[in-house]
Design a protein around this nucleic acid. Structure first.
Length: 167
DNA sequence: GCCAACGTTGGC
DNA sequence: GCCAACGTTGGC
């Protein structure tokens, strides 16, 4: 069992979209980065849990960006169908069904937070400062989270406070 | 809206 | 294999 962090832009697919999806589940499609693809194809297993992270976007209600929920993997890596669909924004003519370039997993919502863990708090916490998402210029949309980082963040969330209240 | 940082592409 | 140019991401 491993822990991960999945990024999504608020305007593209929000935690609210997931909460309202059938069975509160979705296909995590459209990842077009090789390092993240390798995670999806080779390393992410059923039962793995991940933080749902909203990065900065124009319409996001989350400012600063941050971790807004927990999701669980319900189907491990399989070819990303959106790459084969000319009408999809994720269409990639170089990927074919015989030898797919891109992979996806299926996830379901475990928990949506009322109080989220903002990037400012992540950066300000010595326990979290090594998280991939805290690194300058980081663009990796799927990254590993250590058990210590996971537990620390869950501890924060169990306090039930907003970032402002905590500080 | 700006721009730094990054990943990918393509010419050589 | 190098690296400049380009397009994109994402914090602010």
């Amino acid at each position: 069992m491993q822990y991960w962090l999945f990024k999504s832009e608020f305007a593209t697919f929000s935690i609210s979209d997931l909460a309202h999806a059938p069975n509160q589940a979705t296909t995590w499609e459209g990842v077009r980065n090789y390092q993240a693809r390798n995670f999806l194809r080779d390393d992410i297993n059923v039962g793995d849990q991940a933080f749902f992270y909203h990065s900065t976007s124009q319409y996001s209600k989350y400012s600063p960006p941050g971790i807004v929920g927990i999701i669980e993997v319900v189907k491990s890596g399989y070819p990303d169908d959106s790459a084969f669909d000319p009408n999809s924004r994720y269409f990639d003519p170089k990927s074919c069904r015989e030898k797919p370039t891109w992979y996806q997993v299926d996830v379901r919502l475990v928990k949506s937070f009322t109080h989220y863990v903002g990037l400012d708090l992540i950066k300000a916490s010595p326990e979290l400062k090594d998280m991939v998402v805290a690194r300058k210029g980081n663009r990796l949309s799927i990254s590993k989270v250590t058990p210590d980082e996971w537990n620390f963040i869950c501890f924060f969330l169990s306090r039930g406070k907003t970032v402002e209240q905590w500080w």
